[in-house]
């Protein structure tokens, strides 16, 4: 999952970005309204955490510009403005959720998870594929009821593939949603991580969970390889 945090107050931006990264998502940061707009346009973000009082360009202006440009990513407004009118204005401008400062980081993460699930038309916080269960709320993964240890990156990859279960996901899409703009990793890192996931989740005699589509990408599901 790729998230953009647009917040001008550095200590807050730093803390939110760190919390999101530690949840396994790739995070981009913007300190001004215009930066946020440039970054969000075509950035393929699943979620934008947007402060309203941004220098240069107001958060609402950024939001309206994004919606005018047809951007469908979810937007969570994070602001100190707590008036009902402010909330209405924000939601009417195209935001999907609204959180008032100061907030509990756990709540921000829960709302982010809910918005991300909604983005992939998934309601349940538990994604099940045969013996594999992915608990998105606490990032637990069980295989045949037994917990499996995954790194944050492995979990992020699994969650992204699971949310797009049944679809072929290209390497560049995975790249875009798992790694942020500052990441410096080799080009075959996706293949490496898919390999790790297969080793940890797939059991001999059980149907494969992650299928390779040569020249296209990967598909998560219990169907047989084509």
């Amino acid at each position: 999952m790729r998230i953009l945090v647009a917040e001008d107050y550095l200590p807050l931006r730093r803390a939110v970005a760190q919390a999101l990264r530690e949840s396994g998502w790739s995070v981009d940061e913007a300190a001004t309204g215009s930066e946020a707009l440039v970054c969000a346009r075509g950035g393929g973000h699943d979620l934008i955490v947007l402060d309203l009082m941004l220098p240069g360009m107001d958060g609402l202006e950024v939001l309206r510009a994004l919606r005018r440009a047809g951007e469908k990513c979810h937007v969570l407004i994070l602001t100190a403005r707590d008036g009902v009118e402010d909330r209405i204005r924000g939601l009417d401008a195209g935001a999907d959720d609204y959180l008032v400062k100061p907030f509990a980081m756990e709540e921000l993460l829960a709302r982010a998870r809910a918005l991300l699930r909604r983005g992939y038309d998934v309601k349940s916080p538990v994604l099940s594929f045969g013996e594999v269960e992915i608990h998105t709320s606490d990032h637990r993964v069980l295989v045949a009821g037994e917990p499996v240890e995954l790194t944050a990156r492995e979990y992020a990859l699994l969650e992204y593939l699971a949310l797009r279960a049944g679809q072929v996901v290209t390497r560049s899409e995975i790249w875009q949603h798992i790694y942020d703009e500052n990441a410096t990793v080799s080009s075959n890192v996706v293949d490496v991580y898919v390999g790790y996931l297969r080793r940890k989740l797939e059991r001999p005699g059980q149907p494969r969970l992650i299928h390779t589509r040569r020249g296209e990408g990967y598909l998560l599901g219990l169907q047989e390889d084509a």
């Binding site: 107050y9 550095l10 200590p11 803390a15 919390a19 100061p102 907030f103 980081m105």
Partner: peptide
Amino acid sequence: RTPLSGLRSTLEVELS
């Protein structure tokens, strides 16, 4: 509110 939420978020992330 803004510095307060910066403080709270930093501490919450730190203690998570």
